[in-house]
Structures are given as C-alpha cells and as structure tokens.
Design a protein around this nucleic acid. Structure first.
Length: 911
RNA sequence: GGGUGUUUAGCUCAGUUGGUUAGAGCGCCAGCCUUACAAGCUGGAGGUCGUAGGUUCGAAUCCUGCAACACCCACCA
C-alpha cells in the first residue's frame, strides 16, 4: 500500500483509510435486510499473475458504481473472486516450475494439482492486496475461488444435469489441438495470425494414363484489359463474351468459368491434365492422410474428371476425384486435396461423402505410423522430406508465396493442429433459444446498446461447445468408466470405475459464476425459486474482449440452469491502449503497471485518469499527461478544502441564507447533485466527471471562493462559512466514487465532518428543509461585468475606472477585487457607458479611442448575428419550426437589436 | 468474404431525441507571486466537424456512396 505526500504537511496513508472503511463495515452486505439490494458479482481475475491496467480499469468502474449505489441508499454487495483459468494457468505454472528447476513431466497429477493450487493461492493473495489498494469496496467475506468445493459442486452438478438431459455427449470429431498444451481447445480460443506461407502445386498422377479429356473449344488469343484475382483473371468485355477458353499474352491459357454479370467474366488458368491433376496446398505433409481430391462440379476444367482415380504421391494410395460445391474454383488450381483427419473443411467433405479418415499426425504433433516412412518425424521435418521426394519425381510443379491466416492457440500461442479426438460436447441450442426470447422481451440491458446485437448474433449461430480439456488443472469431468466404457455420469464415484481424466473448459465454471457464488455463500438455493431481490444479479461489468467467452456463456448456462439471464444490466468497457493507441501487452513491453502510477501519483489519480475521457465499449488511451492533469486536480481539491477548513464552523443545519449570491450557489449545488445522480444512474462516468470537475474548478474555486474572500469580512461571515462547508461537502461527496481516498481524507480528517464519507448517503447531504429561491441572474450579471472589465483592462493595458448601480450587497467590492479595476462614486465624469446583460456600466479610461474600436467590434458582431437571425425569421423557419422555438429566436433578435442600438447610441456619445 | 466501430482544435477526447456563436483537458501566445493553490490566477489565438451527394426551414448530429484506420466473425486448402 502506498503513502503519498500532499504538500509539506499532509501525508495520505491510503491503506489506513481502507482499513478504516473495513473496520466501519462500509462494504458489508446486510444479509438480513433483503430490501433495496444491489448485487454485483465481480469478474474473477485469473489467479496466476497480477493485476494489470485493464483490471484496474474494470475494478475502478465497478467500485465507482458500488460507491454510488451505496450513496443512493442501496444495500450493496460486490462479490470478489478468483478464477483458476485452466489452460492459461497451466502455461504460466509450468514456466514457473521450470524456473525452479522442476520438470513438470516428473510430477503426478495429484502433485501438480496441489502445487498449482498453492501457486494460485499465493498469487490470489497478492492480487487481493492489489484490489484493495485500488480501493475496491468488495465484501471480502464473500470471496470465492472457482475451485472451492462449494462452487465445484454446483459446476459438476450442472454437467450431470446436462448429461441427463441428453445435452452433454461424447463424440469423435475434429477439434483444435494445441500440441504445446497437449489439449483440445474451443473454437473461440483460436486466434488467427497472418503469416507468409508457400503454396505448393503438386501433381497427383492418374492411376492409369488416359487420354486427355476434351473440355473446351480451342483457345482464342486475346488481348485487352483484365484484372488478376488470385490466379484467375477477370475480364470486362465490350461485347458478348466468348464461350471459349482464351490465351492471354504470356499469362498462358485460361478456361472460361463463369460470368459475374453480362460482360464480366472470370477465367481460370488451364492446367495440363495429361499426367494427372494438380492440387495446391500449404501443408504437403497432410497428403499422407489424403483420401480424395475434390473439385467443384461446376468447374469446366474438371467436370469430366469426376470419378477418375489418382495416386496420392508418397503413399501409393489410390483416391477418387470427387465433387463438392464448397470447393472454390478460383483458389489454387481449383482442385482440393481432401484430408478429413486434419482439416475442418475436409472433415465436413469426408463426412458428407463417406471418405476414409486417416490420422497421420498424432497428438504430439508428429507423423503417426500411418505416415509410413515419415512416421516419427515432426510435421515440418516431414514436409521438407516430402517436398524433396516430390521434386525428384517431378511431381512438384511449382510453388508461390502467399500470406494466409494461421490458427494459433489464444493461450499457448502455438499453431493449432486440427485432429480427430474423442471429446465431450455441449448442445445448448435450447438454452440459446430461451435466452434470445428473454433478451427480446427486454430482460437484459446492455451498455453500450450496440453490443446487444453481437450477443444475439452469437447466440443465433451457436455451435456445440467442446467442453473437455486434456488438462489436470480444473474441474475433473464426473464421468466414470469401466475398461474403456462409459458407465455413468454422476457426482459421486462409481464403484470399480475410474474417472474421466479430462477437465472442463475453464469457461464452463466461470460461465456459472453468478449463481455458483451466491449459492456457495448461502444467498440463494439452487433449483429453487430465486429471491428476485438477489438473483438475477443487478449488474455485470467486463471488458469487451470477453463478450463471447464470458458474457454469452453466462447467459447460456444461466438460462439453462436457472431459467434466467444471471444479470439485469451488462456493461462493457473497452481496452486500455498505450499513448500510441497500441494494445498493452507483455510481448510489446508497452504495459504500464498500475502500481507505478499509484506510487507516483496516488491511487486517486490512477482512478480519475481511468474514469475520464472514455465511453462504454470503446478502447481508451492511457497517457501520463492525463495523470499529470489529475494530479493537479488533487492538489486543487486539497487547497480548496484547506481554504474552507480555515474558515469553517461546524454546524449541522443550514436554515437560512440572506445574501442573494449564497442562495444562488446553494441552489446550483443541489442542481449539480441532481445531474450527478442522473448521470451515474446511466453509467456516464466520464461526462459526470467532466461536469463536476468544471463545476468545482470554475464555479466553486474561481468564483465562489474568490467572492467569499470579500463576504467573509462582512456581516455575512457566519452564513458564508456555513455555505462553504456545505458546498465542499457536496463536492467531496460527488468526487468520492471517483477518488475515494483523498475525498475521505479531506472529509473526515481535514474538515472533520461527522462520520465517514464512504458511508454518507444522498439523504444526508441533501437539506430538504431549505426552500428559498433566488434568480440566478444576479450571479450571471456580476460575472459578465467582471469579465468585461478584465478584458478591457488587459486590452487597454491600463487600470480602468468604472461605475455601476450595485444590485446585491457588496457587489462593488466584489467587482473591484475580481476585476482589478476601481469603482468611482461620481458617475458624471465617466467617458463611456456599456450595457452588460442589461446593466449599465460606466467607464473611464485615457484611451477612449481603443474602447471605441472595441465598441465598433461589438456592434459589427451584433450586426452579423442580427442579419443572420433576420434571414432565419424571414424564411420558412417561422412556419415549419415549432412555435416555441420561433418565439425564442424572435426574442433573441429583439434583444440583439436593442443591444446593438444601445451600443450604437453609446458609441455616438464617445468623443 | 461478411459484420461492427471510428474519423470534431496541434494532441487526447466530449457533443444528450437535428435547433442556428461546436466544448473540455493538455499544449501554445500574452500578462500576473492577488494572504487556499505558480501543481496557481487572468486574458487570448486555434475548428468550412474525413470526403462527395441527399433529406430538411435548419445537419457535427439522419440517409447513401467513397476513403482511411481499428476491431470482430467465417471451412479458404
């Protein structure tokens, strides 16, 4: 925890303040009063590292909401937790073991599990301290870990239910296999990176040499404009396109394929089909498992070849040329080698056409014994040797460099090897139907609302979920086997049976987090009627990057298990980017440690920097300049509080205000409180912060405090002190969710207000008994006069004398002080007069000509606006716009004309 | 290939359901140590709101095309 220095004499000990909040039960959920609850389950961070700036962002938002809801009188519960994060933790943990000189392969499952548990508990403790250092007002009695028994029991139970409902099943299918982590992973855990690769064109010779099929009419030579598309060309014809194949310059012979519209036709290169069929592939090693060559039935080059047999080189296997509509004739040669065991699309073709599945790559990423003489080699080694061999046989026709997208594992970052393995799958289509209905009937509010469509789209296109992982770290699947056969799926061990060695995808447990946590802590009972004041929970906040991973899964599993979407409001924040707009990441080395900022500027500055200048769902740049600006703000807040504390009298109730300005300010403070409440109720963190920042700095510091310096010396002294203390209390109250530490310190230590600010509620800062009213104009007029005098003073480079008729007590003293200009008693000797907000200001200065030119400028500006407004009021605006609007503009014009005439008259009077 | 978002002052971003002088912070220029604060105060400069059209009495705001950038999704070998 950090201490920051505030000037010479103040030291802010953030951890001491946090301790005090805890001691005074500021974050405690009152379990018995189930009224007016605000239940908010926090996203559990992965317990294998530390919090980064993105976590800080999320938690700051969540804590800000929590504190605001407490202010609003809710019984708030923020549920903290930690996630075991299956595969990611395994990656981190194995690195950790290796760094300690331990070989993970030598440890048993039990040893790994218990060591990993220890490791996570240690990290969790560190991370918990980080969360507290941020000021996160969670109720720590409710903290849970995803592998805690009470949580696990429900997770397992859900799976048993799914199995009993026939929605969990085991099947051999092609999956994304990560060789590095030795497990399958789900589709959304796969990322695609662009890489350069080589596309090899390989000839599969005919089983028996045949006569070349006559496919096309003879080619005609052709020159003209064409565009290249992959290896095809598109030609725009001026007249009727030919139905023949054509020869284009040195590009070679092309075969007419199809017309895109009347004149635009696509042509494909003609390959020599005399020796065999040429396929194109980036992964020649997979040819060891080829069981067909597929072509598009509409492709004129190959139509007549369908059904013929070729030999797969290196294997001697005879396979047929088959037809499949999914084959893209424009890619490669238009002939696709089909490897059902090692490619998703090929798997589909194989299933449809009943092709043989030949697994030639193993889970270890090496060629299996089915790969013949290449058996035991890695895929890359095999590729090299196969290419050499093909070259020797003159079967490698050509190769070209391409950029293509390579699938990699999101966690382990290794290249995905599609493999066929037996896995557990979940079919949640029914739940997704229900979820969609609930969403459509308005059961879920999403911020920003556009993201709702992403969720809906994902739910509509849901595929079965591969939920088993070949890992040891996680919830072990409760399936029981006897000599390789599944006997049952149940929570309790089955006698004489052994348990499935796989664990669940980590999102299977975190997807159940809202109800597992509440049930584990006894707030709800599973499969009962859920108390609507507790479940569905009231809020969920997460980064937009885990919308599919987590939000959608929680919705699905929540609807399946509880019949309800587990939260009513779902808020997404964006990602934190660096100053250049790049994602922060360890590999880039551009990350900023939150602790760094906290140590340098204090936690409040970190929080304010995160909560300013962003909108929901959008990424936000984090800059040091922002921190600097907010550090200045903290300084200002301290100084303003110091000023108030020097002039502070403690009094509970403010019953009456006499000075008109004080009445105006008190009113506007309540107005700010209302705006603050309204804004935060719709989670507009940044605009609320902007608003109260401006109010504090511009209105409170620059005007109210400055004017107070006069009034404090008058008979208004005591009401002035009272007012100042009231206003600073409101200000600290509004900044508290954003900057809890410094506001608490100033409120409770410096200003010694009663009680903790963290406990203060709206009804305690509002003074409902106060009713007087004053038109705001008295303050606005005064401001306008001061501003004009200040400008003239700087413009003329000389002190100006002025005369006004005071409207409120001590107004002359106030204007003199704030403008630095002197008031004169004798209005007769004045040189010029000005009209400011309908108030007459007389002026005296040596450089009247300068004032004249100022006047002239003012008149000109007025003229411009008058002519614009006149045009407007002579247009159809008057008949088509709403009448109140027209009226407003008319009034504006009248005022302007009067003002201009006054100015003109005064100008004429100047010498 | 499909989808979404972004484009406003030198920089980072606001701009509520269209309403007529487009805002803030930082930076910049000029002047000030005025007894809370020089981490401050005062004044000022700076924008034809990406582009081309359209709807409208009226467009930064709504619609369409285009461009640049960003992200997401998909079975392209």
């Amino acid at each position: 925890m950090y201490k920051i220095k505030l000037g010479k004499d103040l030291v802010l000990d953030e951890s001491a303040i946090y301790e005090q909040w805890v001691k005074e039960s500021c974050f405690k959920f009152k379990k018995d009063s189930c009224d007016n609850n605000f239940i908010f389950v926090l996203p559990p961070p992965n317990a294998n590292g530390e919090l980064h700036l993105g976590h800080s962002f999320g938690y700051t938002i969540m804590d800000c909401i929590g504190r605001f809801k407490r202010q609003s009188g809710f019984n708030v519960l923020l549920v903290p937790g930690k996630d075991h994060a299956g595969i990611q933790t395994q990656v981190v943990f194995e690195k950790y073991l290796k760094s300690k000189g331990i070989n993970p392969a030598e440890l048993s499952r039990e040893e790994i599990y218990s060591k990993c548990y220890e490791f996570c508990m240690d990290r969790a403790q560190y991370m918990r301290a980080q969360e507290k250092s941020l000021g996160l007002g969670a109720d720590w009695d409710y903290e849970l870990f995803t592998l805690d028994p009470a949580v696990s029991e429900i997770v397992i139970d859900t799976f048993v239910k799914l199995y009993n409902d026939g929605l969990a099943y085991k099947a051999d299918r092609i999956v994304n296999w990560s060789v590095e982590s030795n497990t399958s992973i789900s589709d959304i855990e796969v990322e695609y990176v662009e890489q350069k690769g080589i596309l090899y064109y390989i000839l599969y010779p005919w089983v028996e040499r045949i006569q070349e099929a006559t496919l096309n009419e003879p080619a005609e030579n052709w020159t003209g404009d064409y565009e290249k598309l992959n290896n095809a060309v598109v030609i725009n014809f001026d007249s009727e396109p030919p139905s023949k194949s054509i020869k284009i310059n040195d590009l070679g012979e092309f075969v007419y394929f199809k017309s895109l519209d009347e004149r635009r036709c696509i042509f494909l290169p003609k390959f020599d089909t005399g020796r065999g069929i040429i396929v194109a592939t980036t992964r020649p090693e997979t040819m060891l498992g080829d069981s067909a060559v597929a072509v598009n039935p509409d492709d004129p080059r190959y139509g007549s070849l369908i059904g013929m047999e070729v030999v797969v080189p290196e294997t001697g296997r005879k396979v047929r040329i088959v037809a499949h509509k999914g084959v893209d004739p424009t890619y490669g040669t238009g002939a696709l080698k089909v490897t059902p065991a090692h490619d998703f699309f090929d798997f589909e073709i194989g299933k449809e056409l009943g092709l043989e599945v030949i697994q030639v790559i193993g889970k270890d990423g090496k060629i299996t014994e089915k790969g013949g003489r290449y058996s035991g080699l890695t895929t890359l080694e095999a590729r090299e040797r196969i290419l050499q061999s093909l070259k020797k046989q003159d079967l490698l026709i050509t190769s070209s460099e391409i950029t293509h997208k390579v699938p990699i594992s999101e966690r382990a970052k290794d290249i995905i090897e599609p493999l066929i393995t037996e896995q557990w799958w979940l079919n949640l289509s029914e739940a997704s139907e229900k979820a969609l209905n609930l969403i459509n009937s308005g059961e879920l509010e999403v911020y920003p609302s556009e993201f709702k469509n992403l969720i809906i789209h994902w739910l509509r296109n849901l595929k079965d979920w591969n939920v088993s992982r070949q890992l040891w770290w996680g919830h072990r699947i409760p399936a029981w086997y006897k000599s390789g056969k599944l006997v049952s799926v149940s929570k309790m061990p089955v006698p004489e049976c052994y348990q499935d060695s796989d664990t669940f995808d980590t999102w299977f447990s975190s997807g159940q987090w809202p109800y597992t946590t509440l049930a584990a802590k006894g707030l709800i009972e599973m499969d009962s009627n859920y108390d609507p004041s507790i479940y569905p929970t009231h809020m969920m906040v997460m980064g937009r990057d885990i919308l599919f991973f987590w939000a959608c899964r929680m919705i699905l599993l929540g609807v399946y298990r509880t019949g309800k979407i587990p939260f009513r409001k779902l808020y997404f924040h964006g990602l934190i980017l660096d100053e250049q707009g790049q994602k922060m990441s360890k590999s880039r080395g551009n990350g900023i440690e939150p602790g760094e900022i906290q140590q340098k500027y204090g936690t409040d500055v970190l929080r304010l920097s995160l909560l300013s200048g962003f909108s929901p769902g959008r990424d936000v740049r984090f800059t040091m300049a922002k921190c600097e600006a907010w550090a200045k703000f903290i300084n200002k807040l301290i100084n303003a509080s110091k000023f108030v504390s020097a002039n502070y009298t403690k009094s509970e109730r403010l019953t009456n205000l006499n000075h008109p300005l004080n009445v105006v300010w008190y009113q506007s403070s309540f107005q700010k409180l209302e705006e603050y409440k309204k804004g935060l109720n719709s989670f507009e963190f940044s605009s609320v912060l902007d608003n109260i920042y401006l109010y504090f700095w511009d209105t409170f510091c620059d005007w109210i405090i400055e004017i107070s310096k006069i009034l404090l010396k008058t008979e208004y002294q005591s009401e002035q002190k009272l007012l100042l203390s009231k206003l600073i209390e409101h200000i600290l109250f509004m900044f508290h969710p954003y900057a809890p530490f410094i506001t608490e310190y100033l409120h409770s230590e410096l200003l010694k207000f009663d009680g903790l600010l963290a406990k203060k509620r709206f009804d305690e800062v509002y003074d409902y008994n106060y009713h007087s009213h004053q038109d705001e104009a008295v303050f606005l007029n005064l401001k306008a006069i001061v501003k004009i005098l200040r400008r003239l003073k700087i413009f003329l480079k000389e002190p100006i004398k002025f005369w006004i008729e005071p409207q409120v007590p001590y107004e002359i003293d106030i204007i003199q002080k704030l403008s630095g200009c002197q008031h004169v008693q004798d209005a007769i000797s004045m040189d010029a007069s000005l009209l400011v907000n309908n108030r007459k200001v007389l002026l005296s200065a040596t450089q009247i000509s300068q004032i004249k030119s100022e006047y002239q400028k003012a008149v000109e500006q007025a003229e411009i606006r008058i002519s614009r407004l006149t045009d407007l009021l002579n247009s159809e605006f008057t008949t088509k716009a709403p009448s109140d609007l027209v009226e407003r503009e008319r009034k504006k014009l009248e005022d302007l004309i009067r003002e201009r005439d006054e100015l003109k008259a005064q100008l004429a009077n100047l010498n």
